[in-house]
Design a protein around this nucleic acid. Sequence first.
RNA 1: CGGGGUGUAGCUCAGCCUGGUAGAGCGCUACGUUCGGGACGUAGAGGCCGAAGGUUCGAAUCCUUUCACCCCGACCA
Length: 490
Amino acid sequence: MNNPAKQQNARTAITPTREQDFPEWYQEVVKAADMAENSPVRGSMIIKPYGWALWENMTRIFDAWLKDYGIQNAYFPLLIPVSFLAKEAEHVEGFAKECAVVTHHRLEKGPKGGLVPAEAAKLEEPYVIRPTSETIIGDAMARWVQSYRDLPLKLNQWNNVMRWEMRTRLFLRTSEFLWHEGHCAFETAKEAEADTLHVMGLYKRFFEEYLAFTGFVGPKTAEERFPGAINTIGFEAMMQDGKALQAATTHDLGQNFSKSIGIKFQGRDGKEAFAHTTSWAYSTRTLGGMIMMHGDDDGMIMPPRVAPVQVIVLPVIKDEAGAGALMDFCNKIADDLKKAGVAVKVDSRDMRTPDKMWEAVKKGIPVRVEVGQREMEANSVTFVRRDLGKDSKTTCTVPEFLAKVSGVLDDVHNGLLSRNRKFRDDNTFDGKGVSDIKDFFAAGKMGFVRVPVETLKDEALEKVKDEFKLSTRCMPFEDEGKKVLIAKSY
RNA sequence: CGGGGUGUAGCUCAGCCUGGUAGAGCGCUACGUUCGGGACGUAGAGGCCGAAGGUUCGAAUCCUUUCACCCCGACCA
C-alpha cells in the first residue's frame, strides 16, 4: 500500500467500483462521461452536449424507422386540462398523484417581496403538465376520425413529459424526461394488437442492432399494465446488478380511451363504431439503462452505432518542433475516416496526453487511435478498443486501418451485445414456484427468476414480493407465455 | 405526508460544542519540467459562511423565524 506506483496501476477510473456500490458507480459514470448533471430544478436534469449527442443519435435513427412504418410526427400541447385527464377512470387513478398542476397565469409582487401567483389570475380550470398525452391526442383524434377511411391514424411526437416522482436519479427517473410517444387509432382490435407487436419488434431490433442492449420481451401481468390499457408489452432489460429496467413499452388501449373520449367513426357497414387505440414509448431512461448495461469500472462504453464519437485520434506530441507535421498527419487520417462515414474527432487540445486518454476512456469512445512520431514515420496508427482495454493495442498501416475500421466498430458492437446476452442468460434462473423465488432472494442472489405463470395464482407470492421488494416483469414471448419473470427493479 | 439530516470557494467538506473577523483537498489561471494507461514544482485567482431578525464591544459559531435541498418509506417510463 505504500507503493504509490502500484496503487496507481490498480486504480480504476471510477470510484467506487460496480462491486463496491453500484448506484453510486452509476452516478459517477454519468458525471465522468460528462453526459448530464443535476439542475437547480428539483428532480430535473441538465443533459450536457455529450449526453445529448447520444440521445440525438438514438432518436434520429429510430424516427426514420417510425416514418418507414407510416407514422406521422405531430405536436400537441404541453398543458392538458384537468378534465381531459379525468376522462378515463383507470388513467386518472394512475397519474393523478404525480401531476404538476398549473393554476395561475400571472405573477405579482408578494407581501413579503418576491413573486407570487396573482389571485386574480387564477385559472378557472387548472392544467396539468402532461405526464403522457393519451387524453389530449385522443381529443384531437375524436374530431379527426369520422369514417373508417380516416383510419388507421398513426401519430408520434418527440417531446418531454413530467411526472412528479418522489425519488429521482439522472436518466433513470427524473421528474421531467424526454421520450417519443406514439399514438395510433385503428378500425379493428386485431390491427391495434398487431401495432403493439410490430412496434415492440422495432424497439427490440433497434435496441439490439444499434444500442447492443438486450432484454426480455413479453406482456406484462394485469396489475403491471399501463393505467387504462388492456395489454402492455414490455422490454425488460437486466442491469449489471441483476435488477430489471423497463426500457420500452407498447400498450393496447382497446376501446377504453376511444369510448371515454369519443373516438368514433362510421364503419364499412354504416354503423357507428369506436376506434381501437394504442400508445408506445421509450425514454431517456433507456440511455441510463445503456450506461448500467455497458459501463465498466473505467466508465461508460458507448455502443458504436450510436456513439457521438466513434473514433478519437490522439496526437502524442513529444517535441514541439514536430507537432505541426504530426497534427497534419492526424487531420489527414480524420478526413479519410470522415469520408468513410466514421464519426471521428481529433483531440488537439493543449493538454497532457494521459489526461486526454482517460477522458476518452471515461466517455466510452469505442476506438482510440494514438499517433506519435513512430506512427507518422511508418504511415501507421496504434489503436485500442474501449471494450477490451489496453491489451487490445494494435498497430497497423493507415490504409489497413481505414479498410478495417468499420469492421472493428462492428466487432465492438457484437462483443457488447453477446457479452450482455450472456450476462442476462447467466443471471436468469428457472424456478418451480414461490418457494424457489423466496430461496433465491433470501440467499442474497440477484437476477431474474423465471417461474411458470401458474405461480401468479399462488397467494403466497404477494408476501414474498413484499418481503424482497420484487415485481413481476413480463411473460416472455420466447416462453410462449408459459413463464413469468420475477425480479427487483428500477 | 411520516421519520432523519444538511446549507461555508466551481465541487466535496472542515471550522460551530467552548463567539475574536475564513480553511483544506480537488478543480481553475500563469510559468517551468513533463506527455505512448491518471505528473510534479513554484506563484496566483476565487467565499459579505442559505435568508431575515435578535443577543453581544464583537456572530459562520449562540437564540428565534424562514426558505431550500438531501436521505429512508409508499409510487413510478
